[in-house]
């Protein structure tokens, strides 16, 4: 039995099931990160003293990572635009670069984390580091998850292009929506954790 409304839109919603599904998922993600942000506000405002992020964290590395993630959002949307232009080869290049930029982001985070651990700074050290590791750790898991889906779409998943290009394009668009959300979360994490 075929999955319904993958290509054609439902009359009642005006959307494909995949599109409404990913947006509902992202709404739940907003609440997940929202709960952690609210906890951060509560803990920070309730603390007698709170360190500035730039006295503990590496701002130049995080700035570099911000630029990397923004660049990956552009390559992701360009990958989708390539499919809309029916250029599978260009799609592969942009999607490959998107995954590569995700890998660069995680590598930089690995060095950041390693440096903290070597300096004896752990989540249990203080509330600031507990919040830092929780929020950035959860965000890193999202980056990794997005990379896995994108790798599937670049590899075995791209066979769908031969049989149903519209469905494949919709899948890439939905994967892109998740990837942009991950970028959006980082846009707020960066100043609140590193700069304030």
């Amino acid at each position: 039995m075929d999955i319904p409304y993958t290509v054609e839109v439902r009359r009642d919603t005006g959307l494909t099931n995949g599109k409404i599904g990913i947006w509902l998922f992202l709404a739940s993600e907003v609440m997940l990160f929202g709960a952690l942000f609210a906890s951060y506000i509560l803990i920070r405002t309730g603390a007698p003293v709170w360190p500035r992020g730039d006295t503990i964290l590496n701002v130049p590395l995080a700035t570099f990572n911000t630029l990397v993630l923004i660049s990956s959002s552009v390559t992701m949307v360009m990958a989708w635009a390539s499919l809309m232009r029916r250029r599978l080869g260009t799609f592969r290049i942009y999607m490959g670069v998107t995954i590569l930029l995700g890998f660069v982001f995680l590598t930089v985070k690995y060095f950041e984390y390693s440096h903290k651990f070597e300096a004896g700074l752990f989540p249990s050290t203080n509330n600031f580091l507990a919040i830092y590791f929780t929020l950035t750790g959860l965000h890193m898991l999202h980056v990794f998850g997005g990379m896995c889906v994108n790798a599937y779409l670049l590899g075995p998943g791209s066979k769908l292009w031969e049989t149903n290009p519209k469905w494949f394009t919709n899948r890439v668009e939905n994967s892109g929506l998740f990837w942009h959300f991950v970028d959006l979360v980082w846009i707020f994490l960066f100043p609140t954790l590193y700069l304030l």
Binding site: L15, I20, W23, L24, A27, V30, M31, G34, A38
Partner: peptide, 22 residues
């Protein structure tokens, strides 16, 4: 589409409530 905007508007209401909790 309007349906997605409506879903996100509802999410925004709950998000703002969450931020206001502290």
């Amino acid at each position: 589409k309007k349906l997605i905007i409506a879903v996100l508007a509802l999410t925004a209401v709950f998000f703002i409530a969450l931020m206001a909790l502290p």
